[in-house]
Design a protein around this nucleic acid. Structure first.
Length: 309
DNA sequence: TAAGATAAGAGGGACAT
DNA sequence: ATGTCAGTCTTATCTTA
């Protein structure tokens, strides 16, 4: 009798029933039948390309997957249809029509009822734009939304700048999914002071009790290499340099981008490629001075390496 | 002109008070 | 909570090859 459009139907991986329920606050999903939990559902990054109504079908290229954490209600709300027909297609009686009108009103109100949800809408209004600017994957955006929701649950949003926290969540999502984006990049593209983002990031790290992997210089390397137009051979050379440096334990506390850049520079020089420190510096977003300093360290470690062999 | 050196300052972590 | 300290990175400027 109600015409419901919902995309929450999903079979449980354990019991196979259509009883998956999602926790509205965190986006975690569990099976209402057997209790099977899919934690961190954003880990499975395959885009959901299902559609359950004509409108949604036409719309899906713009909105991404029909169920997204980046939509304020995760796209899981029910919508009461407007055609005033029952499930078999027969017109509704007059009294039922007025009932449905009333239900519709309450239904639409409840969707934005909580201030949390309004907050979330505000926070994610421009996320799509940012995604394009930083060339990020859907998975990272989903993770950003997941982290932001966690922060919201902890009450970290109140009294703080929403863009700052979104930026911090985004940076955190990048770190977590090993997508090398620097704090500076993120803050520049979102147009917030780096300091602010960095403060929020540390707050999240502390309050959410999360451990972030240290940025891998090797991941940064290929990015710098392509920025600077360096070849495969140079990259391989830089890789061994970085591995040596890791073994020598001189990498702790150093900026991974700087290490990667310095390794690439040294490798390029060794392999006869002509490249200036300036180019590397621009490609990595690190100053020439820092590149030089890292070069010094890496060269020392390389010398020691050769001597000990 | 590229590379190296030096100095001053910002921002943050560790640690003690 | 606040201050100090060592370490990193950045900006700016000067020197060297």
């Amino acid at each position: 009798m109600l015409s419901l459009d919902t995309d929450s139907y999903m079979k449980c991986a354990r019991c196979g029933k259509d009883t998956m329920v999602s926790d509205g606050s965190t986006g975690e999903r569990f099976c209402g039948g057997c209790g099977f939990v899919i934690d961190e559902r954003i880990e499975d990054s395959g885009p959901e390309r299902r559609s359950f109504s004509k409108e949604e079908h036409e719309d899906r290229t713009r909105t991404g997957g029909p169920s997204s954490l980046a939509i304020h209600d995760m796209g899981l709300s029910t919508v009461i249809g407007y055609d005033n027909k029952d499930a078999t297609g027969k017109p509704l009686s007059t009294s039922m029509k007025s009932t449905m009108t009333r239900l519709r009103t309450w239904d639409s109100r409840s969707q934005v009822h909580e201030s949390q949800e309004r907050n979330f809408r505000q926070a994610f209004g421009e996320l799509g734009r940012i995604k394009d600017k930083l060339a990020l994957s859907d998975a990272v955006i989903e993770k950003t939304a997941y982290i932001y929701r966690k922060a919201q649950d902890k009450g970290l949003v109140r009294g703080r700048s929403i863009p700052g926290l979104v930026a911090a969540s985004l940076y955190m999502a990048c770190r977590d999914s090993e997508t090398p984006r620097t704090l500076t990049e993120v803050s520049q593209k979102i147009n917030i002071k780096r300091k602010e983002v960095s403060r929020c990031y540390r707050l999240l790290l502390k309050e959410l009790d999360l451990k972030m992997p240290v940025q891998d210089p090797i991941k940064c390397m290929s990015r710098i290499a392509s920025n600077a137009g360096l070849g495969e051979k140079v990259k391989r050379g830089a890789l061994t340099i970085l591995e040596n440096a890791n073994n020598m334990e001189i990498t702790a506390g150093k900026s991974p981008m700087a290490l990667a850049g310095a390794a690439l520079y040294i490798s390029a020089v060794i392999n006869g490629g002509y490249i200036t420190q300036k180019v590397i510096a621009q490609a990595s977003g690190i100053t020439e001075v820092t590149i030089r300093n890292r070069c010094k360290g890496l060269r020392d470690s390389l010398k020691l390496c050769v001597l000990s062999q």
